[in-house]
């Protein structure tokens, strides 16, 4: 007979009577697997205070991080009419509607103007939660209009990318947005208006292969997945495991594809300095 026996009655505390609700207050960091206090994470712009792992943030949070305060959202009414009548696990129209109610946005990008350290700028910020931040005709048109406004107002352009690439549900129309935006960037380039491309986790496919790689400066947040083909596609093609850190910001920096890797909290001062360098004092 065992010399110790758990008293069964001890375990039957009345549920919820004295317990403190801790759910949602603490989070496990994706990078270091440590427990972090949610408020610490929020105060640090969703960057882990222990390991500097940059969590994804939404388009609105990004704009709040970069603009001085108030900003004006532009072209918010543009929506896609589902040109292909595309149906996968559910109709594209329904998918758009559910994404709209989930994110409060009409498509995967917010275009806005405001000031950054006192300088008027155009900022386009992609929303990774909206069908993977994918680019269809709405994203293409919003960016092109932002570029045209940049040229007309001689205001620098900043595009923050977070996208899986061109949107499959709009077929070749999505593909052609790459050419449309790149053409507009040619005009921006001719007009010598500064364009800073900020690549964040994740930027792949047709977005990387068009405007995200065409900045006067291409900078990325630490640890962001950046590439043309997705890692799974490459693994299937070459049939071997990819090396650690492949297609991460630091890998691209080493291979000469990025101008710098800039942590989130230094992003705004970095851009402000770069704009002062290229455009002169405010």
């Amino acid at each position: 007979m065992p010399w110790f026996k758990r008293e069964k009655t001890i375990g039957t505390l009345e549920a919820g009577a004295k317990s403190v609700r801790t759910e949602g207050l603490w989070l496990k960091c994706e990078g270091c697997r440590q427990i972090i206090w949610k408020k610490d994470l929020e105060a640090n712009h969703q960057v882990c205070p222990k390991c500097e792992n940059h969590s994804r943030i939404d388009a609105a949070a990004r704009l709040a991080l970069l603009f001085d305060g108030e900003y004006e959202v532009l072209d918010a009414g543009l929506t896609s009419s589902d040109p292909l009548d595309f149906v996968d696990s559910k109709p594209y129209r329904e998918r758009l509607a559910s994404m709209r109610s989930a994110t409060g946005l009409t498509d995967a990008l917010i275009s806005a103007c405001g000031t950054l350290e006192g300088r008027p700028v155009q900022i386009c910020s992609m929303e990774p939660k909206f069908i993977g931040g994918s680019m269809g005709c709405v994203v293409g048109e919003k960016i092109t209009r932002a570029i045209e406004r940049s040229i007309a107002q001689r205001a620098p352009l900043i595009i923050v990318s977070a996208s899986g690439g061109a949107r499959m549900q709009e077929g070749a129309i999505s593909l052609m947005q790459m050419a449309k935006i790149s053409g507009a960037l040619m005009r921006l380039d001719q007009a010598a208006i500064t364009y800073i491309s900020v690549l964040t986790d994740q930027t792949t496919g047709g977005v990387t292969a068009s405007f995200a790689m065409l900045g006067d400066l291409n900078i990325a947040e630490p640890g962001a997945l950046i590439g043309f083909a997705g890692p799974r596609v490459i693994e299937q093609t070459i049939r071997q495991k990819l090396p650690d850190g492949f297609q991460r910001s630091e890998f691209l920096l080493k291979h000469g594809m990025l101008d710098d890797v800039v942590p989130r909290k230094e992003l705004k001062p970095y851009i402000a300095t770069a704009l002062r360098f290229f455009c002169g004092p405010v």
Binding site: A212, F228, I234, T237, H255, G256, M257
Partner: peptide, 12 residues
């Protein structure tokens, strides 16, 4: 879509 193509900047 291969390692060498990515290293040399396929997207760019």
């Amino acid at each position: 879509p291969g390692i060498d193509a990515e290293e040399r900047g396929q997207a760019e």
